[in-house]
Design a protein around this nucleic acid. Structure first.
Length: 406
DNA sequence: CCTCCACCGGAACTTACGGAGT
DNA sequence: ACTCCGTAAGTTCCGGTGGAGG
């Protein structure tokens, strides 16, 4: 009998029966065509076209929910412009793409910009102000148009404020031979309202809103990518439509649709199936959902976990805030912890509701008061399993099981 | 129609904590 | 090393409320 590991190794190294190029379904893949975004590509390219003549384009702000193609459109246009520049031997415009979720401090953003445009900058040791100056001097000395793309810029601002944005929008006042323009991308629509009015007006010279995709458009996108990603005839009919309709229900998120399709393919591969079927897609959806849920539960504050624990041990249902609170206090007592006030617990319940882990409904029982009816949104055994990764909770759960067996 | 339960949920206040500036 | 400031998490206080039962 062959040993298991070498079997796995052989499988991993061997040609995939399902995938031709798995990468084509990754969310950071830039395809050659972006279906249903042609007009946005045109608009973005037109807005950026001044750089081709060595002039400064307007600052641009792009909004739209997650997975509506903002990043893909911008990256696509940048790629094409850069290709053109290389072919024509032009070097008077440069792009810098910064994802503010990864580069989440002022220093790291500036550092990324610096390395993207070819300035040599020590990766530590300078103050932010000094870094800013050096960058400005470098840009000025090279006589060029720099376009900085700040993706998920709301992350940066939430973490360190809009100081950097303000300085970047004002940097042109000190540049004579060169210019800098900014493209901000965010999926938080309310975010712009929180900005300093000065930043808001100069950053939002032009605003472009990306609408969500509908199910048919998502299906088109998936079809296009599927041709690249999968071998011929491995996709069962209806798989693409299924993935598209699931994602369309969640505000038309193309990223989710792609994830789903890729994961369905991976499941099919794991099962050594010859075709990717709707069953695989359904399984993928379930697993992705459970994964997302367990991830949320795992990162919950401790007392929120305890509230969930109280709910899960009562069969996932509580007829009132008061009764759940009592159960929660009992658990706190057993674990020797200070319980939170009921007011706070009530709020935490509402937060859990918003996260989609449980549903709480405010109801009135007339004479018997007004309260929240609370029900778990996920299977309670799943919750208990996830919560048990905390040692103290785990012990408690074990204790309960023993009691029940007796 | 009124009452009154068992909370809801707004507001103001207290602590604790992690930077920024000096 | 120091203060200062903003923020997050909780607490206390309290007015508000939908509707069953009188």
């Amino acid at each position: 009998m062959e040993d298991v590991v070498s079997e796995v190794i052989k499988k991993a190294l061997g040609e995939s029966k399902i995938f031709k190029n798995r990468e084509a379904l990754a969310c950071d893949y830039i395809p050659n065509r972006l279906p249903h975004r042609e007009e946005y590509i045109r608009k973005t390219a037109e807005l950026l076209s001044p750089v081709l003549r060595g002039e400064k384009p307007s600052n641009i702000f792009l909004y739209g929910l997650t997975g509506t193609g903002k990043t893909a459109v911008v990256k696509y246009v940048i790629k094409r412009f850069t290709e053109h520049a290389e072919k024509a031997g032009i070097d008077f415009f440069k792009f810098s793409y910064v994802n503010c979720r990864n580069e989440d401090t002022n220093y790291r953003v500036l550092f990324k910009v610096g390395s993207d445009i070819g300035a040599k900058i020590p990766f530590t040791g300078l103050s932010v102000a000094e870094l800013h100056n050096r960058l400005r001097e470098y840009v000025e000395s090279k006589r060029m148009i720099v376009t900085i793309v700040l993706d998920e810029v709301d992350f940066l601002v939430k973490k360190v404020g809009d100081d950097l944005l303000y300085r970047l929008t004002r940097i042109n006042d000190e540049l004579y031979r060169s210019k800098v323009s900014i493209i901000g991308i965010t999926n938080d629509v309310k975010f712009v309202e929180t900005l300093d009015p000065r930043v808001k007006s100069s950053l939002g010279e032009v605003e472009v809103v990306f609408p969500p995709y509908d199910a048919l458009q998502l299906a088109d996108i998936l079809r296009e990518r599927a041709v690249l990603a999968f071998r011929e005839n491995v996709l069962d009919s209806g798989v693409i439509e299924y993935c598209a309709s699931v994602a369309a229900r969640e505000h038309g998120d193309a990223r989710r649709a792609l994830d789903l399709l890729r994961f369905a393919g991976e499941i099919a591969e794991r099962e050594s199936a010859l075709k990717v079927t709707i069953e695989h897609a359904k399984k993928a959806r379930e697993e992705l959902e459970v994964n997302a849920a367990t991830e949320v539960v795992r990162t919950l504050p401790y007392h929120s976990k305890l509230i969930l624990l109280s709910l899960a041990t009562r069969g996932g249902f509580a007829e009132s805030t008061g009764s759940l609170y009592l159960a929660y206090r009992k658990i706190c007592d057993i674990l020797g912890l200070e319980p939170l006030a009921q007011r706070r617990v009530s709020e935490l319940i509402s937060e859990l509701d918003m996260l989609g882990i449980l549903t709480s409904k405010v109801i009135s029982r007339g004479r018997y008061g007004k309260t929240k009816e609370i029900a778990l949104g996920i299977d309670s055994t799943v919750i208990l399993k996830v919560l048990s990764s905390d040692t103290r909770i785990g012990e408690y759960v074990k204790l309960l099981k023993n009691d029940r067996n007796r």
